[in-house]
Simulated assay, not measured.
Amino acid sequence: MSEAQQPTAFDADDLNFDDFQLEDFSTESSFQTQASVERDLSFFKSIPVTVTLEVASKEIALGDLMKAGEGSVIELDKLNGEPLDVKVNGSLMGHAEVVVINDKYGLRLIDVLDSALSGVGR
């Protein structure tokens, strides 16, 4: 009959960390450096987004809206000539004014919010 092998007891005192050559361990080759974190973002340039020019809005009671009919006027919250909100996928990107280009509406950006571009390409 063969002897059953007994598992050897592990003693933490038997470990000698000096045997590991940690000084040869290079953090640059094993972990991403700051330079490699800056990635090529060209892949994201082809992802479609929806750009919306929001003229104005108004919060009203549903009952008042149900009374509205053809020819009714609902006063909105922006003044005439005030810059309009530009939204990308529903998030505010900046402000613009309406222009006409080849008989189509367009927008001319007046300002772009810093928060809209934070973290992109940096």
Rank of each mutant, 00 (worst) to 15 (best):
F44T: 09
E82I: 07
A9Q: 10
T27F: 15
R108G: 13
A68G: 04
P48Y: 03
S30Y: 14
F44K: 01
K45G: 10
V98R: 04
I74K: 02
L62D: 06
L84K: 12
T27N: 06
V49L: 15
K78N: 08
L84A: 11
D111T: 10
M1D: 03
V55Y: 15
D111L: 10
E82F: 03
M1C: 09
E28T: 14
A116K: 01
L107R: 05
D114M: 07
S2P: 12
M66L: 15
V51N: 00
D64S: 09
S72E: 02
V73G: 04
T8P: 09
A68E: 10
V37K: 06
A116R: 01
F10V: 11
E82W: 00
L84T: 02
D40R: 08
G106A: 05
T27Q: 08
L107I: 15
S42M: 08
V73W: 03
I110S: 10
D13A: 15
F44C: 08
M1P: 05
G63I: 10
L62G: 00
F17N: 00
E97P: 01
I47W: 05
D64K: 09
E54T: 11
A9Y: 06
A12I: 14
F25Y: 06
M1S: 10
V37T: 05
S115A: 13
D85K: 11
A12S: 14
E70V: 14
S26Y: 02
E54M: 07
L107G: 00
G121I: 00
T52Q: 13
G106Y: 02
T27M: 13
Q34V: 12
D11T: 09
G69F: 04
K87H: 05
I60F: 01
T50Y: 02
N102Q: 12
N89L: 09
D19Y: 09
R122F: 06
V99C: 04
S42K: 11
E38R: 05
V112R: 03
Y105P: 00
E75Y: 07
A56T: 04
F25N: 00
T33V: 13
A68P: 09
S2C: 02
N80L: 14
L53D: 02
E54N: 10
Q21S: 13
S72L: 03
M1N: 02
Q32G: 11
L79A: 14
F44D: 06
E28L: 12
E54R: 13
V55T: 13
T50E: 13
G119S: 04
I101P: 03
G81F: 06
D85F: 06
E28Y: 12
K45Q: 13
G119C: 11
